[in-house]
Design a protein around this nucleic acid. Structure first.
Lengths: 152, 152
DNA sequence: ATTAAAGTTAAAGTTAACTTTAACAATTGG
DNA sequence: CCAATTGTTAAAGTTAACTTTAACTTTAAT
């Protein structure tokens, strides 16, 4: 059983938890503050506010931002990402919403597995292309050596 | 040395090579014909034409389309893809252009390696989220069992 | 030969994901 | 305290990647 006392014990740690202003977080993630605000508008993150109404980001918020950016890098749209993370952090979400997010995520695992395979294929494709290019480049260089007198 | 004769020998095979109309290729790749035309406008593919001016796609063209779509799935922009494939198929390209493409591709290998790592992280993140969601869902179900009489 | 289906171009329209701007409020350093 | 910096919102602007449309041509099937 958790007493009020044992909760109190974590108070200091909680209060010490590192927070960020919007521009600090933006710098850290190498994106612009407006991008972060834009994601908030889309419902992807909900930072706390100071009494003066300025945004305060927790490390939890930061982790979520990282997840969003990671998803984006794999071509997921913001709407898809929103569905994936759903309201995972919000204890308010209803069963139906939770199960929807879960189903969505299950599908994403398959997509990720597929992505891994495709990355290998993409790598192979690029390897073939670069081999061709290298061959072509060395041929061109050889040709240049045989008649190096175009401008001399 | 390749004689005119030995070239002739491959004629039949070349003429038999499978080709596609724009809508056939589109169906195959599950994209729309206009998307393919759009990529052509951007210089990503250059199909042959019939005497009546309709586009004819070779399997080489098809392979390139697949590469483009694969690149896209990993968040590469069309411009980036254009730089990667450069004029790899075009024997006209100049040394400078070839070396530019090569340098570009070298960079992409690093990006792909990074992507592989990130896919693993993304997978882990989603795993954590889905565990949380499952826990939450089962809690909600338990609660529902205790008071199942809201509308009855 | 005729006509439906599929193709062509150029131009305008759409959508997602930001970015910029304007006008104003909060925070920080000297 | 006060100026510079950083923050706030709402709205308009931008860009990439398509999609749609219109007006017309080619191809395929009867």
């Amino acid at each position: 059983m958790k007493s009020a006392q044992s909760r109190q014990n974590t108070r200091e740690a909680l209060e010490k938890a590192k927070t960020y202003t919007i521009s600090q977080l933006a710098a850290l993630l190498e994106i612009s503050p407006s991008t972060i605000r834009f994601y908030e508008e889309k419902g992807l993150i909900s930072p706390e506010r100071t009494k003066g109404n300025q945004r305060v980001y927790s490390s939890r918020n930061k982790a979520r931002m990282k997840l969003i950016l990671r998803g984006k890098r794999f071509g997921f749209s913001l709407d898809e990402i929103a569905e994936m993370i759903g309201l995972a952090d919000e204890p308010k979400s209803e069963l139906a919403q939770i199960e929807k997010s879960l189903a969505y995520i299950k599908g994403k695992f398959d997509q990720i597995a597929q992505s891994k395979k495709e990355l290998d294929i993409l790598e192979q494709d690029l390897l073939v292309i670069s081999k061709k290019l290298e061959k072509r480049a060395s041929e061109l260089k050889k040709a240049q050596n045989k008649k190096p007198a175009t401008s001399g």
